[in-house]
Amino acid sequence: MIVVEGKEDTVAIRRAVDADTIETGGSAIGEEVLRRIVLAQERRGVIVFTDPDSPGERIRKIVAERVPECKHAFLLKDEARGKDGIGVEHASNEAIVRALERVRAPGPHASSDASETPAPEIEWSDLLDAGLIVHASASKRRERMGELLGIGYANGKQFYKRCVNFRITRKEFLDALEQLEKEGI
């Protein structure tokens, strides 16, 4: 089941792929909708596919807190831009399919036994060294890195959390950083 914000997003998803959706009705996501998402996760699995903007990120965070094992699909801002704003409903079929092909699952959650939780491959210092934080172009660099890694745009702290939660490998990170450097960003 794909969690989207509204009816127009459902139309766009169904235009691109054969899938069922749960609409949150916007960022004021209610308890009834959250219970449906929990049930969907238990029975079928859930992919959160919200708009690449602040309200979409708020919904993503609320759903992930309630259903930490849900998966995430990220749409690039440029692919979601329409004359009325930014949203899944403006994306092409190809962009939606691409985002769904790059779905990310969260990593294992911390357990009481630290030996069972693998150490993250990306450290905060890696973001600093890569100019993704405390850098004149940090925001632009994070936006492109998020595109390359398939984890979307986020501020520095959220970007780091996504690298850890989605188990971004050192190789993936370095390959994306190399591409970023080639592009001169």
Rank of each mutant, 00 (worst) to 15 (best):
G30R: 12
E23S: 11
E5L: 01
G6W: 00
E79K: 11
E5W: 01
S115Q: 11
E69Q: 13
E31F: 11
E31N: 11
P106N: 09
A110E: 13
V38N: 01
E121Q: 14
E89S: 13
D51E: 02
S137Y: 09
L177K: 12
G45E: 05
R170Y: 00
G184W: 01
P120N: 07
D20F: 09
E181V: 14
P120I: 07
D129Q: 14
R167G: 09
H90P: 04
R144W: 05
F173R: 02
H90L: 06
E172H: 05
L148M: 08
V63I: 13
V38L: 09
D113H: 08
L180D: 00
L149I: 08
L100A: 05
A12W: 02
A110W: 11
A12N: 08
A80C: 07
K83S: 12
I29C: 06
E31Y: 10
S54K: 13
V97R: 15
G82Q: 05
V67T: 01
N93R: 14
S54T: 13
L180Y: 03
E8S: 14
Y153C: 05
A19P: 02
D113S: 08
G45N: 07
C70W: 04
S112C: 10
W124D: 09
R142C: 07
R102V: 06
L132R: 00
Q179K: 15
L148Y: 06
D129C: 10
R142F: 07
K140E: 14
P118M: 07
A19H: 07
K182Y: 08
D20R: 14
A136S: 11
K83C: 08
D53Y: 04
S137P: 01
D84G: 12
A16I: 03
A154F: 06
